[in-house]
Design a binder for these strands. Structure first.
Lengths: 244, 244
DNA sequence: CGATATCTTGAGGAATCTCAATACTAGTGG
DNA sequence: CCACTAGTATTGAGATTCCTCAAGATATCG
């Protein structure tokens, strides 16, 4: 899979309103660490990119040259076993951050699920900013802490929940994250394929499909067109998700 | 389960060699961010504690008052479902760090596996130090990044590996971490119970036991007394762990 | 040295996976 | 605008891994 084309990079010039100032998701992102008057420091080093669906952003093991911020669309992060088994470790939406590295290499691959816009920050520049703006460091640390907590929730899901509980948790999670982004939480937008959902939840596509069908038959959800899922019985789905 | 007694807190006095200066695992810990002459700043706020096996350090949902550093022994972190199903999200050894919180509450419970020594840092004091020592912030962020990468590896294990591959990965992981601490890597010390291993790997104790037996029968490992496991065929166990 | 935990082994069952066929959806070209 | 095609999703039947329940063996601790 070839890395995405740069496409049409956002023009970043003195005559432009700098992109960060107008960023609609700034409050959600790492960039919230900056005051209005400091934003030009970010704008100097950022590259805005639009990427088609199903494009590789970077692959596990690549030198970690950049950090990224998703401003629109959906991205998936995943790891592979040599024989091709795949585990998706997270889905990212607008406001989410990616590109943390260990030993200067990415520890996972990143691919777009749908058309996506991202801000790209060269890591070396970012590191200079980290020294200059302790707030940024703090913000990044806070976001990493949140991700760590989410990872632990996901471990609980993968290790101990049934297929039914996994799907319920997944839908609730999508719904709750939509709220935080200020998007509608019901019906939930589910932009990823059954296969992606399966690789995120440690299931097969068939089991994912069967479980959706079962929840639908129980009157708990409704499958709508355009990959939307309506949560009919919110109370019930919450019960299922928590395994009670 | 009651929170552990303070036991015999280390005396911290002017006449003492301050504990951090003599700390044998400092280079592994968050404390490595400090120069010799800055260590007294840490020593001022630290409380050294020795805790018996199977004691709760804190529980999920508790207000996150402290950060901790393990200096000896073994700790497990876990999350529970309402019906008692448990997922252990990590084992900690000397040099490891715990106590990161979300919304000022611990997101998981922590319990000692064996007799353990920890350094306790009041979070409020630590936060002041964070402002004063950007190096500390940096170090903490680096450790969180590493934990995040480990969490992703664990998700791959939980979602996509077989029981055999899980056990092989587990033993290798223990072995590799022992090396980093400068302890012997073979035979591997396995201080936790079958039940803990099961709850870490998303299996049952019976399956863990059967898989150990099977690896032993294959001549890949040998089960020694005192919870030690000798890796006989390193090459083979590596192959199994990576699923090839 | 006995009591109690933990660990191992066995047999049967259940959830999920695999393989296979069919149905649906979305994009493409006539 | 509609038929065609390729990918995606659903459904079915049988296989498999791992789990559950139960008993026996071993280790640990007072």
């Amino acid at each position: 899979m070839p890395p995405f084309d740069l496409g049409r990079p956002a023009k970043i010039g003195a005559q432009d309103v700098h992109p960060c100032g107008a960023c609609p998701v700034r409050s959600l992102t790492v960039c919230a660490a900056f005051e209005e008057e400091e934003l030009n420091r970010l704008a100097e080093i950022v590259q805005l990119q639009r990427i088609d669906a199903h494009q590789t952003i970077f692959s596990e093991g690549d030198p970690a040259m950049n950090l990224f911020n998703v401003t629109a669309g959906t991205v998936k992060l995943y790891k592979l076993l040599p024989d091709g088994r795949r585990q998706i470790t997270g889905f990212l939406f607008s406001g989410d951050f990616l590109g943390l590295s260990v030993n200067d290499r990415y520890a996972y691959s990143a691919e777009t699920v749908a058309v996506t816009s991202i801000c790209r920050f060269p890591r070396r520049h970012m590191e200079l900013l980290l020294d200059e703006f302790p707030k940024l460091q703090r913000r990044l640390f806070g976001m990493a802490s949140n991700e760590l907590a989410a990872a632990q929730d996901q471990m609980l899901l993968l290790g101990r929940k049934t297929a039914r509980e996994k799907i319920a948790s997944f839908l609730l999670g999508l719904s709750q994250r939509a709220v935080r982004r200020g998007q509608r939480d019901n019906p939930v937008q589910v932009p990823m394929s059954r296969s992606d959902i399966a690789d995120f939840l440690g299931l097969t596509t068939e089991t994912v499909s069967r479980t959706f069908t079962q929840l639908k038959a129980n009157g708990i959800i409704r499958l709508l067109e355009g990959g939307k899922v309506q949560i009919v019985d919110n109370r019930k789905i919450l019960e299922i998700a928590e395994g009670s």
